[in-house]
């Protein structure tokens, strides 16, 4: 096995939600922290796609921001091709950051509305100095526009003249303009309509094949994940609960939360299932449950689950954070009783 392009170990990020010191002094409140990312380990091989899935508040987008330097980790390491990124700001060091780019969720907010498209796409090349000559830069912009399925003339237009899908193409053109090796894609299709989503997903697969890109794909949509990923990591309240090859997640999900997610995806082929079960909701991340975060919703929870945090241990070809799986209780158990 080759060395992975990206290696993340023990990554943590907590946000301080405490009142200011003086207010705390008077109200007697304790300091409050949200552990948005609470010890995450994964690595991504060159040319492959790892998807992080989870519901809102599970910390998947924070992982993306940490990798890109948009926020700083509280603890842990992020090594990109041997370069340590923890403690480095966005865009720094330039020769490494040039090789990592990001595609954002909201195609309406990710392009500066006052800039022409050509200027938007050229910004990374200008900033990182990959194409110092303006006329060459312009030529490259035209090439990129055509590469992502737009026309060179579109460079003169403003973002509001494009549809959501076309804007996401512009975003992609900007992201690949510095010839990166690694793309972080934060829910790139969740704001798009289905028929357009397919276009963008196909384009991203094509880019991966042609340019040999490595993706970290972040989404809440398991069906999208199925199409795009080689490996899948399932996150719950800041922790990875299962990490496995894509086929395995779908064929043999281990963690009870992964199973719950798979079961609840609305499916166009399975009409009128009865799904009204007491499966609960994601708890408040400020006060996560003790032990395993998933225990209040888990049909397999025991006293051990309620007190002891499970470790992230290898299980077959995957890794799982679950006492029940590690104790061998998960296989036979019926996940949840029907009403």
């Amino acid at each position: 096995m080759s060395t992975p392009l990206l290696n993340v170990t023990g990554l943590k990020k907590s946000f301080d939600l405490s009142q200011p010191f003086l207010n705390r002094l008077f109200s007697g409140d304790e300091r409050k922290f949200v552990h948005a990312v609470d010890g995450v380990d994964f690595s991504i091989e060159r040319g492959t796609t790892l998807s992080l899935v989870g519901e809102s508040g599970c910390g998947k987008s924070t992982v993306a921001k940490l990798l890109m330097g948009l926020t700083h980790p509280s603890d842990g390491n992020m090594r990109f091709d041997g370069n340590e990124l923890a403690g480095m700001s966005a865009g720094d060091p330039p020769d490494v950051r040039r090789r990592m780019q990001m595609i954002f969720q909201d195609p309406f907010a990710s392009l500066n509305p006052r800039w022409r498209v050509a200027r938007i796409i050229a910004e990374p090349m200008k900033s990182f100095g990959t194409h110092p000559d303006p006329s060459e830069r312009r030529k490259e912009v035209d090439r990129l526009l055509e590469f992502v399925g737009l026309s060179a003339a579109d460079g003169e237009k403003f973002p509001h003249e494009f549809s959501g899908g076309q804007r996401q193409r512009i975003s992609i053109a900007r992201a690949i303009s510095t010839k990166p090796e690694f793309l972080v894609c934060d829910e790139p299709t969740s704001a798009l309509d289905v028929s357009v989503q397919a276009q963008i997903l196909n384009l991203m697969r094509e880019l991966q094949r042609e340019l040999g890109l490595t993706y970290l794909f972040i989404t809440h949509d398991l069906a999208v994940v199925n199409y795009i990923s080689d490996y899948i990591g399932v996150m719950y309240l800041g922790r990875l609960v299962e990490l496995a090859p894509a086929e395995q997640i779908f064929a043999a999900p281990q963690h009870p939360y992964t199973r719950l997610l798979l079961e609840t995806v609305p499916d166009i082929t399975m009409a009128h299932r009865d799904m009204e079960r007491p499966a609960g909701e994601v708890p408040n991340p400020i006060t996560p449950p003790m032990g395993c975060h998933f225990n209040p919703r888990c049909p397999l929870a025991t006293d051990r689950c309620r007190t002891e945090k499970p470790e992230f241990l290898p299980y077959g070809s995957s890794r799982v954070r679950c006492h029940a799986v590690q104790e061998g209780r998960a296989d036979q158990a019926v996940l949840r009783e029907d009403l």
């Binding site: 959501g164 289905v194 997903l201 196909n202 069906a223 999208v224 894509a246 499916d267």
Partner: peptide
């Protein structure tokens, strides 16, 4: 064009344009 859970197609069917 809707991605599904199950066997993975090589290319998703797509409707061109918007």
């Amino acid at each position: 064009s809707i991605p599904r859970i199950g066997p993975r197609p090589d290319v998703l069917a797509q409707i061109e344009g918007a």
